[in-house]
């Protein structure tokens, strides 16, 4: 039993990412989409949250949302994995449930 957590809000505007990471269990996966991808950039104020979460969770970032916002994948915090829409679909299949952090 593992959960896919989906975050879609900028971490600079809301606490959805921080709240998600403090409630995700070991072995869960976290997917950043829409404005949430902005937090994935190395050097950001929330990068340390992602780095410490990587010890227990896989964290994915949606490539289409990164590209739309002008962010190259090489700008991301090390250890984050980039997925496209079909990867998003695979993630929802790999996990038996999901939770959105709005």
């Amino acid at each position: 039993m593992s959960m896919l957590h989906i975050v879609n809000k900028s971490p600079f505007e809301r606490n959805a990412l921080a709240s998600c990471l403090s409630h995700a269990s070991k072995g869960d996966a976290v997917l950043l989409i829409e404005d949430a991808v902005l937090g994935a950039v190395a050097g950001s104020q929330v990068a340390h949250l992602l780095l410490s979460a990587l010890a227990t969770q896989a964290i994915y970032v949606l490539s289409e949302d990164l590209a739309a916002r002008g962010m190259e994948p090489n700008r991301l915090v090390k250890g984050l994995q980039v997925v496209d829409y079909s990867g998003f679909v695979d993630l929802t299949v790999q996990h038996d449930k999901n939770q959105s952090w709005l």
Partner: peptide
């Protein structure tokens, strides 16, 4: 709370 969430079958956010 995290443990409660992990124990659910379906989440509504």
């Amino acid at each position: 709370m995290a443990a409660l969430m992990a124990a659910q079958d379906v989440m509504f956010s």
